[in-house]
Simulated scan of single mutants.
Amino acid sequence: MPTSTSAPPPAAAPTARPQARGRRRVDRRLALAVAFALLVLAVLASLAVGSRAIPLGTVLDALRGAGGDSQDVLVVRELRVPRTLVGIVVGVALGLSGALMQALTRNPLADPGLLGVNAGAAAAMVTALGVLGLTSRMQLVWAAMLGAAVVSVAVYVLGATGRGGATPVRLALAGTAISAALYAYTSAQILLDTTTFDRYRFWQVGSLAGHDMTVFWQMLPFFAVGTALALTQARPLNALALGEDSGRALGAHVNRTRVLTAIAVTLLCGAATATAGPIAFVGLAVPHLVRALTGPDQRWVLPFSCVVAPALLLFGDVIGRIVVRPGELEVSIVTALLGAPVLVALVRRRRLAQL
């Protein structure tokens, strides 16, 4: 009696997943190109828009070194170019440090200040103003940077004390405790000295205005080293996202990854806070927006954050120049007003809140 054999499985089935992955890679690259185009648009808007609008042709002439010494050209070269460059590096720093902190602590609500960076910078700022009597902008920037670095080291040492080493929970608790103590010290200093309070409040509000190229060039090495170090931690952080034991099995060095990531966050967030003051929601919200496009893969999250965060910061700065023209609304206020509703919406979506 003849027997029949079942038909073999379709040959196209094994290739379906690789094709889907290929489409996903193309989509990510396309999204990155769009994000970069938005960053270029934000840069041009930052150079052309302000208390007085400058034609784009004049802006391009100023960038090429043409246009002579007209008032518009001087405004672009002396004021808006340094402000835009500071906005770019500060945005990159905040976006990267936020993504690193959320990946390191596996906490979707972690922000760059969790290691005490903002509190250390603030405490050093009021000490430099009220105790040491420093007045130079660069002296205050360096004091804030030093305070951020010292406090970050103290947080890590405190978090690493005891059995188990520097776990994400220990680091978060140590950062919270030290930040509370330093903010109490900062509040006492500014309440006892009105002169210190007057100088400190302009830094505390967070702004990109008032910087020249000297500040940019002196802070650039910290931004560059921090960015390079952050991008090298993408693969180890991906491995640690599966758990410490699984990460070790995949070849990740847990303690080394934590130390290098903490150093990168300190350099990036410390330099950004020292330069522009504490700017809220950029480092917290941008990684969530990026993961909505890329997923949790840090090899994509970190480069996307380098592009999306400065674009968001520059657009916020431009909005601040327009809404109360001829005055200005500080960029930290604009990012808070824009970022809070977005963050609430993201947190309510559990799928995006998980790392």
Rank of each mutant, 00 (worst) to 15 (best):
A35D: 05
G320A: 06
V34F: 14
L314P: 00
L114V: 14
A166I: 13
C269W: 01
L302V: 04
P278W: 06
A234G: 07
A160S: 09
A53E: 15
L140Q: 14
V92G: 06
T105E: 03
A66H: 04
P296L: 12
F202Y: 11
G206Q: 14
I279Y: 15
A224C: 11
V215F: 09
G316S: 03
Y185H: 10
M213I: 01
G120R: 08
T294I: 03
W203Q: 04
G113D: 04
L192F: 14
T5A: 08
T3Y: 10
S70V: 09
D61T: 15
L38A: 05
F36A: 10
A272K: 06
G295H: 09
L30M: 02
I54W: 00
R170Q: 08
P55D: 04
Q71M: 07
R349E: 10
A180P: 00
G243A: 03
H211L: 13
S136K: 04
S305H: 02
F281T: 00
R106I: 09
A99C: 09
A340Y: 04
F315I: 01
D198H: 15
T167N: 01
V26C: 14
I319N: 13
V205I: 06
E328H: 03
A33C: 10
D193A: 04
Q233V: 05
A122P: 01
A285Y: 05
L94F: 15
H211Q: 15
R137S: 12
R52P: 13
E330P: 12
A292N: 11
E78F: 03
A48Y: 00
A274Q: 04
R348P: 10
L267A: 00
L182E: 12
W217D: 06
V344Q: 02
P8G: 06
L208V: 01
V131N: 05
R199Y: 12
V169K: 03
L242A: 14
L114G: 02
A13Y: 13
G22N: 07
F315A: 02
V215Q: 13
G283C: 14
L134R: 14
T3G: 14
L56V: 13
A309W: 05
A336Q: 08
V301D: 00
V205G: 01
M125Q: 11
L208H: 14
A144G: 03
M1G: 15
G247E: 05
Q189H: 02
T5D: 09
A262F: 12
A12S: 07
A11V: 15
R80T: 01
A143C: 07
V151I: 11
